[in-house]
Design a protein around this nucleic acid. Structure first.
Lengths: 346, 346
DNA sequence: GTGAAAGCGCTAACAG
DNA sequence: CTGTTAGCGCTTTCAC
């Protein structure tokens, strides 16, 4: 059995509570006994049992991270590594630790969250996604449990602290970038329709077209998974249309890579035959050939800010609800070209 | 305050201990009272407090994951996402949860581990790296704490359960692949020299050359970080040599991408001017242009197996130490070509 | 088959 | 400034 507070107390000739106070560096303990107790602590090799402390304290200094149900596949997308990096950074400073859900299906994830929360294993939760009518969000809200979502909540956004980009405007800007180049036949490839990012980016895309008096074609709008394969599928559909688009707004770099692959496979050229504006500016956006024009949403910041406000909320339960908007910037590379009239090929 | 075991006991007209037994599904409780108690549990919305259980049990059903000190940068390398995916999968089945270190420097990481272990927050630990004279490993060993390392431990490997690839032979095979193509001037680009993977792959590389009676040139061996930039730096050095290599064994795909970039920037062609055998077979190994011949080390399996044996060890403290070797396979793509005599260019 | 009681290791009133 | 005493919520002997 490990050395406990009692052992220290006995050896140092004080009460356990005194030792506890020394650990907390309470000002009500004389420097003299503090010194002595600390001495004994190192002598005995004492380390506090954090589980016991958590039980007494009703606080764990741990926060839970919830992944979307893309489950294992999510990890393929660098968005998650990057946001995790930001979160990790934020937590380190505050001396909190991190626990992750491992569930794959929606049900498993929900159970994971319930277990974390009811099991009192975490002090707060960060949702790495936002989707329509999410039971997890409802559960957290009903239990008045501290949480923040990365993304824009579907409902009751005014009751939920969230950190997000202005995805509508970002998509609008991205689309405008293409419009300014003369493109009129612009397609949209988005992710899962349940995800708010997808919906917001779609909205911005539509807005831009409407503003430009260009009709919105349902055929030009495709939804797939935020994965390489998703991009491949989507662009196949688009390019076999009677009148295929000459430019694309793609809601994720990984999808864009898929698009590039397929396009090249068809013997077509980017940006000559097809211009692409992508999202997220992952490492491989610049590595792709051609390097992708991509909207950098500052993923790292999303993570850092999420932690910051979650911990604020944990440490002060009446911290007001906040909405944090992280700026984006469009990184222009070589995947977009001016619109050029094409001769009709058989 | 949440509903506790006592509340359930009171309402169900039994003792708290009985409720506890019902939770554990003890055979010594009659089906009848089990039913009644369970009934009350759902009525009151009871959920066990896992922290309290942990304290009583001396077990947390949590395992800790330790990253190498590349700290935040590590996340850029898909190796970690992938191994995390495997770990996550393994844990889910066993109903364990996962906690990660957030430390950046060696010291911070060491402290994280000490806190996890002494704080009794985790039942076991997985090290996602192996390096020479690692204090973390020593600490774990001295405390006889259950842990497994992914990679080959530097010292006392016979006392440490570890899951690894046969990196020596893998590198040997990779090098032979190049030798068979007629290459004689083969360079090696590896990661941090403290890491065992680097050392093992270097060893295999050397072995292959020795077997082929080709002298080993120090100038042909470069060590950088396992990152894109690392590959760039390394190949710059190599290609400015008097007599640059015609083929490369590169210990990581991300580095290989860096190599490709630089090579292309120099107006050279892969595989015509330089053949590359890479490691890890990450998603972008196949996406690169040209697609990379890469040694797939089955990262997912590494994670799954690590969990499996760690949990076995946790649940049975005298489970023997094991060494698990995960097979590798060389995936041939288009980054290697036959050696061709070159005219001397100025 | 079930209950009473002690204990896991720490914190936090309440005394003094 | 320090000690005494209850808990935190659960598990687990030991009785009956």
């Amino acid at each position: 059995m490990a050395v406990t507070i009692k052992d220290v107390a006995r050896v140092a000739n004080v009460a356990p509570s005194t030792v506890s106070r020394v650990i907390a560096d309470s000002p009500r303990i004389s420097e003299k006994t503090k010194k002595r107790v600390r001495q004994v602590m190192v002598e005995l090799g004492y380390h506090p049992n954090l589980i016991a402390r958590s039980l007494a304290n009703q606080s764990t200094q741990t926060i839970g991270i919830v992944f979307p149900n893309s489950g294992d596949l999510a990890f393929q997308n660098p968005f998650f590594s990057e946001v995790l990096r930001g979160i990790s950074e934020g937590l380190r400073e505050k001396h909190y630790v991190l626990q992750m859900t491992t569930g794959k299906s929606d049900e498993e994830i929900f159970d994971d969250v319930v277990k974390m929360v009811q099991g009192k294993r975490v002090d707060g939760i960060i949702l790495l996604y936002s989707k329509v009518s999410d039971p997890v969000t409802d559960f957290l809200l009903e239990n008045d449990f501290p949480f923040v979502v990365i993304g824009k909540p579907d409902e009751r956004a005014e009751q939920i602290t969230h950190v997000d980009n202005d995805n509508v405007t970002a998509a609008l800007d991205g689309t405008n970038h293409l419009l300014h180049l003369g493109h009129k036949r612009i397609g949209f490839i988005g992710g899962n329709k349940q995800l708010m990012v997808t919906l917001n980016r779609l909205e911005g895309y539509k807005k831009a077209l409407i503003d430009a008096n260009i009709p919105i074609l349902d055929d030009y709008i495709i939804h797939e998974e935020f994965l390489l394969e998703g991009g491949q599928e989507a662009v196949k559909e688009l390019m076999t249309l009677q009148s295929p688009p000459t430019a694309l707004l793609v809601a994720d770099d990984l999808m864009s890579l898929g698009v590039l692959r397929t396009i090249h496979g068809m013997g077509l050229n980017v940006p000559k035959d097809l211009s692409i504006v992508s999202f997220n500016n992952a490492l491989f956006a610049q590595l792709a050939s051609p390097p992708l024009t991509s909207i950098d949403i500052h993923i790292l910041e999303l993570g850092i800010e999420a932690v910051k406000h979650l911990i604020a909320r944990i440490e002060n339960r009446k911290e007001p609800v906040k909405r944090i908007i992280i700026p984006y910037e469009i990184i222009v590379r070589s995947s977009c070209g001016p619109y050029v009239e094409k001769s009709i090929e058989s």
